[in-house]
Amino acid sequence: MIRFEGVHKAFGSKKVLNGLDFELKPGSVTGYLGPNGAGKTTSMRILTNALQADQGQVLLDGTPTTELTHEAFKKIGYLPEHTPLYPDLTVWEFLEFSARVRGMSAPATKHRVGELVEPCGLKAVLGQAIATLSKGYRQRVGLAQALLLDPPILVLDEPTTGLDPNQIREILKLIGELGREKTVLLSTHILSHVPTLCDQVLVLNQGHIVFNGTPQAMAERDPDRSRLSLVTAHAPEQFQKLMESCAQVQQVQVETQHRYTLIGSWQNASNVRLLAEFLQKHQIPILELSPEPLSLDRAFHHLTEEVSP
């Protein structure tokens, strides 16, 4: 449906995109991750026609976006970063303008806005000037604008920036619902929501895709397998010192009274076996001994700190 083919973009001497190649799976929510300045916003702008690529192309259903007609762009709903809106218009005036300028008739606009006010939570502010809205409401107006033509593709550039935790939860819930029937490209820095919200993850770094796969596969890229969580019923005094005397343990971190994190080379199975023997020998009852869950944060850090190929 959407395909980036060798897209390059530079601003002056600064190269922002260096041959971007990827494809969005239809009917899926794709998390678009990357550090600030990685090129996420620029690539989204190229996809939505706000910028032109220096080289390469973006294809929508096989047609380069530079050759698309006004009609074809109706397939894409776009919420730009920082949600640009006209502050002097009311919410209704803005939504009406956005619909009418894209060719929607007046009755259809009225009907569609009516449909959107409820799920986007805009009923109470429909007649209010945008300048007087809170950041959360502004974000909802931007999202409603992107949904006006009921497009099959949604491009959302950091829709949760500046929102409080409740607003973030609401917006992400709405995006999750939309993702059941639409193709969503979602740029975000909130990694904790990625496993539940996204079917696919793209990680961009220095203008390259450095990871393309499922959230689970991304978590597998967590390089830190050196942490074991140990829960013991009663640990003897001097437990920390005792554990540090174990050859396989490099460091002991006390998490709570009975929970410890043991740092060592646990990728090596024999080290885990030797640790178990050590605990048995010192008669330390084990309630739980498990590797710490893989972390998307650490995987992200690992993927984006590397210099791209």
Binding site: R45, Y86, Q145
Partner: peptide, 10 residues
């Protein structure tokens, strides 16, 4: 930034 929005309407 609304120019970005207008241009994205194609």
């Amino acid at each position: 930034g609304t120019v970005e929005l207008l241009l994205s309407y194609g």
